[in-house]
Design a binder for these strands. Sequence first.
DNA 1: CATATTTCCTGCCTGC
DNA 2: TGCAGGCAGGAAATAT
Length: 301
Amino acid sequence: MPELPEVEVVRLGLLPAMSDAVIRGVDVVDRRALTRHVGDTDSFEALLRDRRVVSVARRGKFLWMPLAGDATPEQALIAHLGMSGQLLLREVDAPRERHERVRLVIDHPMHGEVAVVFADQRTFGSLAVDSLVATLDGRAGGWGTEASSVPSQVAHIARDPLDDAFVDAAFTLEVRRRRSAIKRVLLDQTVVSGIGNIYADEALWGARVHPETPSDRLSVRAVTRLLGDVRGVLHRALAEGGTSFDAQYVNVNGQAGYFAHSLSAYGRTGLACPRCGRAIVRVAFTNRSSHFCPVCQRMRR
DNA sequence: CATATTTCCTGCCTGC
DNA sequence: TGCAGGCAGGAAATAT
């Protein structure tokens, strides 16, 4: 499941291939991959053809590639991987991927022609061409861009916890203002972006916080510690190339990440808590699951 | 207004 | 062996 570390690994892989490359070919194999695109398939193709990619940027789980040109406002190709989306670099004549949805052929001044394949089993991911809007705080839109702008479809998403412009005090205030379970708040991309089910469970385990704890019951100290654990687990996962749990997530070369071996709670139902040895439990949480240690993460009054 | 639930999708896995 | 049902879950849409 691509969350911030996995999306960042993809960004880092695309960066040398796509920066300064010109999009020469656009082949939409399955138009469901364009659910975020306002306009039809033809407009998607026309907006991309012969445009030069300036950079590869990311905020939370969103990727975007600003496009050179005279368009005002400026435009970008945006990508969200959803649950199972992959962006793969392939030879131009490589056979179709199993779940290939879109193929771009790009021409790089140093590397020549390369195919950028968007494949997505469960079709929750999508690509689009979107216009850029100014950031509210005037800071850079996210990692990988100096420009103080983000795609309009990313504007309502909060900055992620690795972003220099993330404001810890505002996050703490917002968490303690909310009245739902802390895990819900961590997953709310308008509060903090980039966290999904895996890293929410891991960060809560690290901070010894029960996932159902009402977020307005957490002290400033507890929220601060939790934010530290969020950052810690995101950094460690990034250093190990991300978490490849069900073989859906791979980097641009099709390789899995190693962080699944380092998980403490997520997916470890019935296995020993690495801290206290008690079995990790799994409970239903909306339409997904929470994994936590019933001893280390007791709910406190 | 804030918060909670439903919806979209495919493939793997389990149990009968 | 086949088949139904559960499960994985990001985020927009819809409901409370």
